[in-house]
Design a protein around this nucleic acid. Structure first.
Length: 423
RNA sequence: GGAGAGAUGGCCGAGAGGCUGAAGGCGCACGCUUGGAAAGCGUGUAUAGGCAACCCCUAUCUAGGGUUCGAAUCCCUAUCUCUCCGCCA
């Protein structure tokens, strides 16, 4: 959420930032509403002060055993007025609040301005994408079918399209990958492992920015008003919802496995075969709570932590810096990591690393107390996939395929999987 | 699902219509003391909003309503926590 105070002082800056993000918001309306709110507060506070003074005087007289009837008689009108103004204020604040919740985070000044995802600059490439081999390259579906790694038809029978069913070595490989990533982040990168709830309430989904605008992208259990999480970011960021952290405890790094559930409404058509776009997938997420002045440095190390997963696995990847128009609702800056899938002959997004600055912290009321004293401040939150599988699995299969039909696993996975090859 | 009990500041815990933004303790910070530390002593220590303002004013004792000139305190509702019973991986 953006700061109303900042908005009132920098309406033009906000207007430009939102234009860059490709969003149209009536800023003048908001500024007006904010002004109305403050006028109302000034009025009603004055009346309340008067009422409190009278009440106090009544108290004093009663203690002395004196009559206070004429004082009490003075309050009738005052109280009615306070009620009226308080009610009006409540309406104004709820409209203002709900409007503020629909305003996306303005992009950071360093983010390249653009609207088309094809404009996202490639800021890094690692490894050499596998283009040709002396045998025909298969895609993950063909490879998986041959080795019996998953069964999409039965997954569809059980739940519906987009709900993958892993079988045998496929199931084991998925689990191995997740364990490998969790171990890397906890043992080498200094994250604390958490295992969060997979359903969250509205407050949590609002804090991270999924609500109110992306409700139709999530699965909802109507009876309980709980949402299946689209990413572990939601429950993990909300660990410290409504808390005041101590500076000495920052930064806080969490990593979590979770299944992720996405309705992917309106994305039928291309890119949907196999694992490329599914309703349920597995992901290891990294979440950081940091002091504001460090968040951009933390974004870079977060990205490095994600990159390292791919480097240790020996998978060629590239990093894109998202242009303003491609940034998500809550992000101020974001990098996407993409893996090369030689069978699909395309890049697959397996990680998004974002700095939300204080956007989520404001919505979730996550703050910290500076050690030197002074005012409590909003912290900055970041998160990044470290990384999302299903798609990672695709890249491992397609990059590891051999002429004889077997799949060679990256060395780092062998201890987890218990064998060098899928066969 | 049934029956009870409870929810107060970073934590523990008083308070039972006005003098309570809230005693006392712990913790924390600073100072004194000390060769240094511990102990001891002293001082300070919630958040948000309004405002140019650390003065001031308003609000906040789980949340939302109500009674009252005045509510942490009384009434209603909701939520959460705990205990017991039932069911259950």
């Amino acid at each position: 959420m953006i700061d109303a105070k900042w908005l009132r002082e920098n309406p033009d800056e906000l207007r430009q930032a939102l234009t860059n993000k490709g969003v149209n918001v009536n800023i003048d309306e908001l500024v007006k509403l904010d002004q109305e709110r403050r006028d109302n507060i000034n009025q009603v506070d004055l009346l309340k002060q008067k009422r409190n003074e009278i009440s106090q005087a009544v108290g004093e007289r009663k203690r002395k055993g004196e009559n206070a009837e004429e004082l009490i008689a003075q309050t009738g009108e005052l109280i009615e007025e306070i009620k009226t103004l308080d009610n009006r204020l409540k309406v104004i604040e709820s409209v203002l609040q709900s409007t503020l919740l629909t305003i996306p985070n303005p992009p950071h000044a360093s983010v390249p301005v653009g609207h088309d995802p094809r404009e996202n600059p490639v800021v890094k490439s690692w490894g050499t994408p596998l283009e040709t081999t002396d045998f025909p390259l298969k895609n993950h579906l063909e490879l998986g079918e041959k080795l019996g790694l998953f069964d999409f038809a039965r997954g569809t029978k059980i739940a519906g399209p987009g709900f993958p069913l892993y079988m045998g070595q496929g199931a084991r490989l998925e689990r191995s990958i997740l364990n490998f990533m969790l171990d890397l982040h906890t043992q080498k990168h200094g994250y604390t492992e958490v295992f969060p709830p997979f359903l969250v309430n509205r407050t949590s989904a609002t804090a991270t920015g999924q609500l109110p605008k992306m409700e139709e992208d999530m699965y909802l259990s109507n009876l309980d008003d709980l949402f299946l999480i689209p990413t572990a970011e939601v429950p993990v960021t909300n660990i410290h919802q409504d808390e005041i952290l101590l500076e000495k405890d920052l930064p806080i790094f969490y990593t979590a496995y979770s299944a992720c559930f996405r309705r992917e409404a309106g994305s039928y058509g291309k890119e949907t075969h196999g694992f490329l776009r599914v309703h349920q997938f597995n992901k290891v997420e990294m979440v950081k709570f940091v002091k504001p002045e460090t968040s951009y440095a933390e974004l870079e190390t977060l990205r490095r932590d994600a990159e390292e997963v791919l480097e240790i696995l020996g998978l060629p990847y590239r990093v894109l810096e998202l242009v303003t128009g491609d940034l998500s609702f809550a992000a101020a800056k974001c990098y996407d990591l993409e893996l090369w899938a030689p069978g699909e002959k395309r890049w697959l997004e397996v990680s998004s690393c974002s700095n939300f600055e204080d956007f989520q912290a404001r919505r979730g009321n996550i703050r910290y107390r500076p050690a030197a004293g002074g005012k409590v401040q909003f912290i900055h939150t970041l998160n990044g996939s470290g990384v999302a599988t299903a798609r990672l699995l695709v890249a491992i299969l397609e990059n590891g395929q051999q002429a004889d039909g077997r799949i060679k696993l990256p060395d780092a996975l062998v201890p987890y999987f218990g064998a060098e090859f899928l066969d």
